[in-house]
């Protein structure tokens, strides 16, 4: 398009809030240095070996065993977090009881506590002479140095994700939706299933995928309780550390890259699911 009059000057729309250039610039710089560059370095390191060697490292029996353990334990931990996280969010939002604020604060402890401390505490508790172990081991249930121990450590560190993503959405949910459902004949469980759950579903998915991604990479809490027997209770991130200590940088990068790809695929899937669930927010005509 050309200006129709010679005197016409381009009018640049002014933004109401100033500072876009500065804030955006700082953000991009920070993201670039802290997140993007390390990831690029990782990808380059992993790619150095070429596709064939990459597959060979990734499908070595010890690597496969570690990945399998990590993924299964993370999946079980996410299920635990999903069930109990939803329950906790519900209890914290829907009821008033003495000690509610204390319980609410307790939820954040897994975030605040150094994960190694959590791992040590859990292994002490579940060890044969610990409080839980003393009860469980005579029943033939062994937790320490098994996949169950790994699962529990992962669940411990990721439970806040589900609670803290679902809680605000549940709080903002207008009680009128449930009241409307009640006058239309829906009893509480039906109202939950048809009205409340779809409303919190997107946040719930985010919480679960975050807790899964965190479980995939959890290191500190897990290594103390897992026992780290190669082929049995060795998690993928520990194997990467072992490869590093053996000066096998490419091997470490391949394992790390595999974990990264898994996490990205998962987050993409979760975003897709969310977008589907949020379709109704639609565009106003």
């Amino acid at each position: 398009m050309t200006a129709s009059t010679p005197t016409a000057s381009v009018i640049r729309p002014k933004r109401v809030l100033p500072g876009f250039g500065l804030t955006m610039g700082l953000t991009l710089t920070y993201v670039g240095i802290i997140i993007l560059l390390p990831i690029i370095a990782l990808v380059l390191k992993g790619a150095e070996v070429g596709p064939l060697r990459f597959l060979e490292i990734a499908s070595a029996p010890r690597t496969l065993a570690a990945l399998k353990l990590t993924i299964s334990a993370a999946a079980m931990a996410s299920v635990l977090c999903a069930v109990y996280g939803l329950l906790m969010a519900w209890v914290l939002v829907r009821y008033d009881f003495p000690g509610k604020r204390l319980l609410d604060a307790l939820i954040d402890i897994p975030f605040a506590l150094p994960t190694a401390v959590a791992g040590l505490t859990l292994s002490a508790l579940f060890a044969g002479n610990g409080w839980y172990g003393a009860v469980l081991e005579p029943q033939g249930i062994k937790v320490v140095y098994t996949i169950w121990g790994v699962t529990i450590a992962m669940a411990f560190t990721s439970i806040p994700f589900v609670v803290r993503t679902v809680q605000p959405v549940l709080e903002d949910l207008d009680p009128q939706y449930e009241q409307a459902a009640a006058t239309l004949g829906a009893f509480p469980f039906t109202a939950f299933r048809r009205i409340v759950f779809p409303a919190i579903f997107p946040a719930f998915v985010v919480g679960i995928s975050l807790s899964f991604a965190r479980s995939l990479g959890e290191f500190g809490a897990v290594v103390f309780i897992a026992g780290n027997l190669p082929m049995e209770t060795e998690i993928a991130s520990l194997l990467a550390v072992i490869r590093l200590e053996e000066y096998d940088y490419n091997g470490a990068a391949v394992i790390a890259l595999t974990l990264l790809i898994l996490a990205l695929v998962l987050l993409a899937a979760s975003n897709l699911l969310q977008a589907r669930a949020m379709r109704y927010k639609g565009k106003r005509q």
């Binding site: 009128q176 939706y177 459902a181 239309l184 048809r194 009205i195 669930a277 109704y280």
Partner: peptide
């Protein structure tokens, strides 16, 4: 049948 002031239509 109850019609709420702000309708409370189920958004999803």
């Amino acid at each position: 049948g109850f019609v709420f002031q702000h309708y409370a239509l189920f958004p999803h």
